[in-house]
Nucleic acid binder design. Structure first.
Lengths: 332, 332
DNA sequence: CATTCTTTTGGAACCGGTTCCTATTTTTAA
DNA sequence: TTAAAAATAGGAACCGGTTCCAAAAGAATG
């Protein structure tokens, strides 16, 4: 049923090289061009991509490895990558690493086997093994969210995010604050975000900060919040991600604490849900979608052998909403 | 740098057919097997998947077309598909249709070109053109969420979902109810869900139901809720999706209406966020993840030429939470 | 009209595997 | 020890394209 290039050549009474040239815009006379136009259309001819890729030794696929499919950040980033690639005729092959480092490495190897043109990776941390695997893959690898001098990276300005948030909550009059972070192994979220916040705190003499740690899971955050409220009763909890903030908010509701009048809460990320819940969550917006587009654009340039800046820092934006009480006016 | 099968054959002093046989478990003597084991390992040899697919005329890719990447349902379904395929050595190629029917059709054609083994589609509606395109693709196409006699389909029991929800809210004593649905062009969400609900309403004589329509967007739902509250002031709004319910909840908060004591709200879907927000949203859980797994399993059987039931109905489950007031006890 | 330069075309080789068929070697049975 | 059977290996064709090179055809020039 499906015709191949030889069939078409035979039907048109020409050599298959002529058909190939016709399809790829080579020099073909107007007459044969017309004939081939008609015949390929009538036969519904579609070139076999395997055969094309076999000869070309490359395809238009970009592998994207995400830590999980059901996260706002991953979804937005993927959407951005997908749209940018599509406009350039490329395609996105998604791999879900399920937040498992081994699967992340396997995914890279596997994508290299499939001979994708490049890999966009959203890792939680970059290990020596990541570098070795990327090296072995022999194709461009671009990181989003984490950076490494050995690879091309696209990072958010996590330090500034922490700084902005810190200054904002201090401005609002909060002095007794809990910071609920994540493991420092995650350099971006765990370390730099916290350091930015700490820097803001150090600009203010009379504030007390309590540092806590949780996982990225909402349920773990909920439990951590229980501990925080039992131990130090802050006026505000700064959470390292919006999801963590949701967990903390849940705890507040369960304890009957009113947000923000009895407990203020902030997040990081700018997830859609932060604007929908009540009270809307004060957070720092990370432009995931734009980062995805930018990543795809950079990757296309890399696969074309063009130069790309090794490290790009993406700006973030404070998004003050309702979940932070203004203690200045309250005391007036 | 990268070796091909001929290189390996030369290095081992055998014919490439022998190498191929070694790789694919054909009859090879213990001695050559050992030798090839060593050589392929040392050379880091990896077969070229294009060449394999070219000969085999098929690959292990399953195309998945989702309406959008950033929806809970899509994310869960993709995760299910991905995990099931991975266990069977298959891979998922994701296409984002961006809620655009034209792009959905293009995606099918495009996937067929890439010679994926099968397509899993999550359409908002199935048109004649979908059928034609699927037919032309010449590979198995499986629908999730919508059904069509011409294709293999996996649907949720939307009618029962509506029925369960209807009975539940009536049980809770609500009699003046608004149903905020979506277009009936969406047979599953727009039509059957509503019909189930209507059937439940008809089991009760003294209830008044007001039907409204919105899009799937939270913001549109928010606006629709404004209209509903202005026009008929029900004790409860049944929303056709959890996202719509979130929009309605937003309006309630903005108007200072307490949920559920002044306005009860329900959704459909069982999105993660429904359990996190306060009050937690009463909804019907749709097992998206399991559906994804099931879809992948069915697709693998289809590509293997095995028989698969044409229509599978997936059961749903009522998830009563806090957003529905019990008017029975209230009046006691 | 002959000659030269361009444009168009066909043929063959190639990309990197798999598979079929035949030849050779090894094993088993007689 | 030899014949028959079984296991192993090699060679060639094939999958469906692209590309290089040489031949043929057409256009331009003197």
């Amino acid at each position: 049923m499906n015709k191949n290039i030889s069939d078409i050549a035979r039907m048109a009474g020409v050599a298959k090289s002529t058909v190939s040239r016709y399809l790829n815009g080579g020099s073909v006379s107007a007459k044969t061009k017309q004939k081939l136009e008609r015949i390929t259309r009538e036969a519904g001819y579609v070139p076999n991509t395997f055969a094309q890729s076999l000869k070309a030794k490359r395809n238009n696929l970009i592998g994207t490895i995400v830590p999980r499919l059901d996260s706002f950040a991953a979804a937005q980033t993927m959407t951005g990558i997908d749209e940018e690639l599509r406009e350039a005729g490329g395609r996105m092959l998604v791999y879900n690493a399920g937040q498992d480092r081994t699967r992340e490495l396997e995914a890279m190897t596997d994508l290299a086997r499939q001979k994708v043109s490049g890999i966009i990776l959203m890792p939680a941390q970059v290990t020596e093994e990541h570098l070795r695997t990327a090296e072995a893959a022999g194709i461009p690898v671009l990181l989003i969210g984490q950076s490494n001098p050995a690879l091309h990276s696209l990072v958010y300005d996590d330090y500034r995010a922490g700084l902005l948030m810190g200054r904002h909550v201090l401005d609002m009059g909060h002095r007794r604050i809990a910071y609920l972070g994540v493991t420092e192994e995650d350099e971006a979220v765990g370390l730099r975000r916290k350091e930015g916040f700490r820097a803001a705190a150090q600009e203010c003499e009379d504030c007390e900060i309590f540092y806590y740690e949780s996982s990225f899971k909402i349920e773990d955050a909920r439990l951590a919040a229980e501990r925080i409220l039992d131990e130090c009763l802050p006026s505000l909890i700064v959470c390292a991600t919006d999801n963590i903030a949701l967990g903390v908010m849940k705890t507040a509701h369960m304890r009957g604490l009113s947000v923000p009048s009895e407990l203020s809460i902030t997040g990081f990320g700018g997830y859609e849900v932060t604007g929908i819940i009540h009270p809307a969550l004060t957070t720092v917006r990370f432009p995931y979608y734009e980062a995805g587009r930018l990543a795809a654009r950079s990757m296309l340039r890399l696969t074309a052998g063009e130069e790309v800046k090794r490290l790009t820092v993406i700006d973030v934006e404070l998004l003050p909403q309702e979940s932070v009480d203004n203690l200045n006016t309250a005391s007036v």
